Simulated assay, not measured.
Amino acid sequence: MAKFDSLKDKVVVISGGAKNLGGLLSKTFAEEGAKVMIHYHSDSTKTEAEETLRTVNDNGGQGALFQADLTHVGKVTELFDFAVKTFGKVDVAINTVGKVLRQPIAETSENDFDVMDKINNKVAYFFIKEAEKRMNDNGKIITLATSLLAGYTGDYSTYAGSKAPVEEYTRAASKEFMPRGISVNAVAPGPMDTPFFYAQETDETIAFHKSQALHNQLTKIEDIAPLIKFLALDGWWINGQIIFANGGYTTR
Rank of each mutant, 00 (worst) to 15 (best):
D117T: 13
K89H: 12
V187T: 08
G63N: 01
Y169W: 09
A18V: 09
A164P: 13
L65G: 02
I206R: 01
K35L: 03
G88D: 02
G63E: 02
K85D: 15
A173W: 09
G88Q: 07
V115R: 06
D193M: 10
V36H: 10
V84S: 08
M116S: 10
T108N: 12
G181V: 00
V92K: 04
E31Q: 11
A199D: 08
N216E: 03
E167I: 14
R54S: 14
T251Y: 05
I224N: 01
T28Y: 02
V13I: 10
G190Y: 05
A188M: 07
G235L: 01
A131G: 02
Y152R: 11
V11P: 12
L65M: 05
K133P: 00
E32A: 14
I141E: 00
A83K: 00
V187G: 06
N121Q: 15
K210H: 00
F87V: 12
T202V: 01
A64Y: 03
G63W: 04
P189W: 14
D91Y: 02
R252A: 13
A164K: 15
P195K: 03
E51Y: 11
Y152A: 10
V56R: 07
G235M: 02
D112L: 13
E132Q: 07
R180T: 00
V56T: 04
D9F: 11
A160K: 07
L227N: 00
A150H: 14
L70F: 12
E48V: 05
S211K: 12
T52E: 09
L218D: 10
M1T: 11
Q62E: 07
N239C: 08
T86W: 03
H41R: 13
D203A: 12
E110F: 13
L144R: 14
A150V: 12
D234A: 01
T55Q: 14
G161K: 09
T158G: 00
Q67R: 15
L7Q: 12
Q212P: 06
A18F: 08
E201N: 09
T205R: 13
F244R: 11
A173T: 12
N120G: 07
S15W: 03
Y169V: 07
E167T: 13
T96L: 02
L25C: 00
F244T: 15
K85T: 13
T251L: 09
I228P: 07
A34K: 06
I142Q: 05
T71N: 03
L144A: 10
P195H: 09
N111W: 02
V11N: 11
Q200H: 03
A213S: 15
A145W: 09
G74I: 08
P104Y: 15
A83E: 03
E201P: 01
M178G: 03
G60R: 11
Q212Y: 09
G74N: 11
E51C: 07
Y40K: 14
N120E: 04
F87P: 12
G63M: 06
A164D: 14
F82Y: 09
Q217M: 14
G240Y: 04
R171Y: 14
F197R: 00
F127T: 14
L227E: 00
D43V: 14
S211A: 12
K175P: 04
S174C: 01
L65P: 03
D203H: 06
L214G: 11
F82V: 01
P104V: 15
V13Q: 04
G240D: 02
T219I: 13
T47V: 09
D155L: 15
G61D: 05
S162T: 15
K129E: 12
